[in-house]
Computed example of a mutant assay.
Amino acid sequence: MRWTEENCKKLVKKAVLAETNEVLNVKELARYFDVSKNVITTKVYELRRRGQLPKVDKSLQIDAYQRPYTSRELRFIVGAINAGQTCSQVAELLDRTYAGINRQVCNLIRTGQLAPRTTSWSPEQDDLIMNIVKLDANGCVDNYPELASALDRSYVVIQRRIYRLRKLGKLPSVTGPSIRGLEACRRSHQRIFAKGSRGGRTKRMKILTMERNMSQR
């Protein structure tokens, strides 16, 4: 199809734009002009370059899910974290998820825009850990998600603190592998043996090694 100026004007007029200026009705436009969707997409790109259609701006997205972070939001995150706000508090203020804010904080630290956070623990936080931690029969922690939510800390940070509390004698030492982890490992082991699938020997050896390592913790 040869795009005339009249056809271009029709495309601009019939294009339905989202709040981000993305074209929502590419399929319908392709049917109207009797061309493929790729042809419409290419023409839309050309019209944007010529200024006949507005450029896509993801920062205008109304839905917060997967919406790109603006420079203003990033500056706010830096200021809030430096002021002592937690990731959960910042997420609530910006209508974002905890995981999204935590990821941005890590990126800002990695790029030098935010100083690394020092992990300090108050006696009250230690008491909270000791009050709500759930240990299995071998002394392994069985409720890390609950601890992470209550303390607004990552799994790794909490794991390190629990290790420290064990060293201080405030929590019992581990006497064996995690029962939950060992059971999951054994179920996987049984499935592989039952299937007898290709490459099963290698997988079985890996699981046996995992079980042996877990029993030595």
Rank of each mutant, 00 (worst) to 15 (best):
P54K: 08
L168N: 05
V133D: 01
Y69L: 13
E92A: 15
R164C: 11
P172M: 08
D63M: 08
A64Y: 13
R166G: 06
S59T: 13
G100W: 05
R67G: 09
N25L: 05
K167W: 06
P177K: 06
A80W: 04
L208S: 08
Y163N: 11
Q190G: 02
T20E: 14
V26Y: 03
E211G: 14
N102I: 04
R96L: 06
E146S: 14
A91C: 11
P68K: 06
R212G: 03
K13W: 09
W121E: 10
T111Y: 03
E124I: 09
P54G: 14
G51W: 03
S88K: 12
N21M: 03
K206W: 08
R31S: 15
R212I: 01
M205E: 14
L108D: 06
Q61F: 04
R2F: 11
Q113E: 14
L29F: 08
T175L: 13
I40M: 04
G112Q: 09
V105S: 01
S149E: 15
N131D: 15
R161N: 00
Q61K: 12
C106N: 07
D152Y: 01
T209R: 10
D142Q: 14
T118E: 10
Q85F: 09
Q85A: 15
M1S: 10
T97M: 07
T209G: 03
V16E: 13
L114F: 02
H189K: 13
V90N: 00
V78Q: 08
N213Y: 07
V26D: 02
S154C: 05
R49D: 08
R48E: 10
G100L: 01
N213R: 14
V78N: 01
K134G: 01
V39W: 09
N38H: 05
P145F: 11
V23F: 01
